[in-house]
Amino acid sequence: MAACASPAGPAPAAPGPARALPTPDHVVVVVLENHNAEEIIGAPDALYLTSLARQGAVFSDSHAITHPSQPNYLALFSGDTQGIADDSCPHSFATPNLGTELAAAHLGFAGYSEDLPGTGYAGCFPGHYDRDHAPWADFTNLPGSVNLPYTQFPADPARLPTVSFVIPNLCNDMHSCDVSTGDAWLRTNMVGYVSWAHAHNSLLVITFDESEDSPSNQIATIVAGPMVVPGDYGEYVDHYRVLRTLEEMYRLPPLGQSRRAAPIADIWAGPR
């Protein structure tokens, strides 16, 4: 696909000192699939994502760790690719991960996957669900009860655990369908949470597993919530920095390669 000219996006953020990280009541992380940053931010098929970018922080130098999909999900969730370099399934790991660290801190975690056949389902590829995109299903130190169908995403976001991941199905995550399909799904499914989050000290993170064909694996990453100073941030961000930021917010021990990453510390507003 031909590269687009410089896409429209949020105005640059005013420079300022890094602030202490907030502790959101809830964070929802949505992971989408296989698109370069310029296909998303400012693109005509991604009007809702572009509107979210204008409301929040968008990182113009955000990158995935590797190719293909699965090791990126593992990196984001556990700080390591766990030695996986393909999309094979199933795998089992017993290493620490974001879910175990949250549980140890008496905080909640759940992964909500669209088209997952049932809570705790351990199969690989039924229908439009792909276990490669739900890394918590690979960790034997997490109960099956954290692996939930998206139909169980609560209508009242106050019932969400502290940190949730949302994984659309293979069409709605843009893997097998176009950008406009995924963008419409996000508008339908996340607009209510975004509105609620702004009134309830909560946060939405949207990122991609990997690029389509960017030489540097550049992806779109957006963070939106009441504690975010909107703008276009040019610092380098990757999945390990996103994970380290979540760990820092809840004072969790950093996992794997996230130990070497600095948390994102300059996008936050002062005390409200």
Rank of each mutant, 00 (worst) to 15 (best):
P44W: 06
D45L: 03
D45C: 08
D45S: 11
A46V: 11
L47T: 10
L47M: 13
Y48G: 08
L52V: 06
L52H: 13
G56F: 09
G56T: 05
A57V: 05
F59W: 04
D61I: 01
D61N: 15
S62L: 03
H63C: 04
H63R: 08
H63I: 06
A64N: 15
A64L: 08
I65V: 14
T66I: 14
H67N: 14
Q70F: 14
P71H: 04
N72G: 12
A75D: 13
L76W: 03
L76T: 02
S78V: 04
S78D: 09
G79Q: 03
G79C: 03
T81D: 12
T81H: 15
Q82C: 12
Q82S: 08
G83T: 08
G83W: 04
I84D: 07
A85K: 11
D86L: 06
D86P: 01
D86N: 13
D87W: 05
D87C: 10
S88M: 07
S88Q: 13
S88V: 05
C89L: 10
P90W: 03
P90D: 15
P90V: 08
H91T: 08
F93I: 07
A94R: 06
A94C: 07
A94H: 14
A94L: 04
T95Y: 02
P96W: 00
P96Q: 05
T100S: 12
T100M: 00
L102D: 08
L102V: 00
A103P: 02
A104E: 08
A105H: 06
L107A: 09
L107C: 09
L107W: 03
F109I: 01
A110L: 03
A110D: 03
G111R: 00
Y112V: 00
Y112E: 02
S113A: 15
E114R: 01
D115G: 05
